[in-house]
């Protein structure tokens, strides 16, 4: 019983921290530009695979940095080349093009694996090793040091991002655009540039999530869609465009899904995100902490 509860607590916190990173990025882009970015899961995917491909040859530090730089660039390029020109046309084509980007990245990942000679589905070794061991024991539950690392890093990054948005000049522009895009443009803010940085920040956050989470979770090309689905559920639960809502939603959802997995049934645990999406959209479409009126 105690081990079960510990399992729910530990795995729920770790997954919650990872989904917090992913959903904060997703929510940021939606809240600022109203862009429903379906390629967000694919950003996670490509960063994870970058780490997987480089880890053996380049070493840990270089490959992490390289993966993060590449995924941030991909975010910026996909905004500049595809999302920005279509944004003026229609909301629909933006959603469609991000879906196409996500599908394209999934195929690129498969292609990369077959060219570089890697297995498509794999698990990575643990990143952190202290005194020759990778894990410690707490109340009869084995906890890898990676989990502690994930919690520290994700809270650190989210706090930094929050600080950045509230204090820096770019962050102020982001907030201005999310409140009123036209007025912000009139005040001399280059909305396209700020949105590009927003997408890049969100891609970076997805990349960080991938880099810290991939070593403790098997990767597969279809994982991007699962990540995307879960981050939908998180942002709908917490409130579209609300950063505190995303943090809250991430932990509620991951505790709920681990609780059902351990105490009820793994199959029902799979259904939790869908259940959350359907029920929240039916009862409270703006989410727990969302203030923005959705009609």
């Amino acid at each position: 019983m105690l081990t079960d509860i510990m399992q729910v607590l530990v795995l729920g916190s770790v997954e919650g921290a990872v989904y917090m990173l992913i959903a904060v990025g997703y929510s940021l882009v939606y809240g600022t530009g109203g862009i429903m970015n379906l390629a967000h899961g694919a950003f996670y995917l490509i960063a994870g695979y970058m780490l997987y491909w480089y880890l053996g040859t380049l070493g840990l530090f270089t490959s992490v940095v390289l993966a993060l730089i590449i995924v941030t660039l991909i975010g910026g390029i996909s905004y500049l080349a595809l999302i920005k020109p279509l944004e003026k046309k229609s909301q629909l084509s933006v959603v469609m093009v991000t879906f196409a980007i996500a599908f394209f990245i999934e195929q690129i990942v498969k292609l990369g694996c077959s060219i570089l000679g890697f297995e498509k589905e794999s698990t990575l070794p643990n990143l952190i090793e202290i005194k020759g061991t990778v894990s410690f024991e707490l109340f009869g539950t084995i906890i890898p040091y990676d989990y502690v690392f994930i919690l520290i890093i994700s809270f650190l990054i989210v706090s930094l991002i929050t600080l950045f948005i509230s204090k820096s000049k770019l962050g102020t522009s982001i907030r201005a655009i999310s409140q009123d895009r036209e007025a912000a443009t009139l005040m001399g803010i280059n909305a396209d540039r700020v949105l590009m940085f927003t997408v890049m920040i969100s891609a970076f956050l997805a990349g960080v999530a991938a880099v810290i989470y991939v070593p403790s979770y098997p990767i597969a090309p279809w994982q991007g869609w699962v990540i995307l689905t879960n981050s939908f559920a998180v942002v709908i639960l917490g409130g579209m465009g609300s950063l505190p809502g995303s943090v809250l939603g991430a932990f509620i959802l991951s505790y709920a899904s681990h609780f059902t997995r351990v105490f009820i049934d793994p199959a029902i645990s799979t259904l939790v995100p869908m259940f959350v999406i359907v029920v929240m959209l039916a009862l409270r479409p703006q989410g727990i902490l969302g203030k923005k009126e959705i009609d």
Partner: peptide
């Protein structure tokens, strides 16, 4: 999926259907 998502304006249907399909994939692969 349609009744909760289509009450709202915006691309919520896209989101609901995408999630539903990927969850069905996981369920049927068990």
């Amino acid at each position: 999926i349609g009744i909760p998502t289509l009450r709202l304006k915006g691309p919520y249907l896209a989101l609901g259907t995408l999630s539903f399909a990927s969850i069905l994939y996981l369920l049927f692969a068990m």
